[in-house]
């Protein structure tokens, strides 16, 4: 909190080293997610690794590069909570597409 108070004297002031470290981590994580495809991992291992690296990368970008980690909670929650609700939409559409697939298989023959 003391740091947050100082940071707003003029905008955000952080050491350049922090950005370089995050940059390095983003490179490492991107390489990892590329290697998932390169080594042809499949099934739940592939999907969970893709999601893990994606969330870590997204978190680093939002928290450090976009300075969200140093903002007040009022802004943080106002911006970060609504996208989480998209997951409800995802759930609805998963349900919907399973139904569409089901009817297609019933009426047009076997699926993949």
């Amino acid at each position: 909190m003391a740091q947050a108070a100082v940071a707003h004297v003029e905008g955000q002031q952080h050491p350049i080293k922090l950005y370089l470290v995050v940059w390095g981590w983003l490179f490492v994580l991107s390489t990892c997610s590329y290697l998932v495809d390169y080594f042809g991992l499949h099934g739940y291992l592939r999907w969970s690794l893709i999601l893990l690296f994606m969330i870590l990368k997204a978190g680093l970008i939002v928290a450090i590069f976009m300075h969200m980690a140093w903002e007040r909670l009022a802004l943080m929650y106002a911006i970060l909570v609504p996208p989480v609700l998209v997951l409800v939409f995802v759930g609805i559409m998963v349900f919907e597409s399973n139904y569409t697939l089901f009817t297609r298989i019933i009426f047009f023959g076997p699926g993949p």
């Binding site: 559409m93 998963v94 919907e96 597409s97 399973n98 569409t100 697939l101 297609r104 047009f108 993949p112």
Partner: peptide, 9 residues
């Protein structure tokens, strides 16, 4: 996601 999940091809 929806079109990919619902296609039989």
């Amino acid at each position: 996601m929806t079109v990919r999940m619902s296609t039989t091809v």
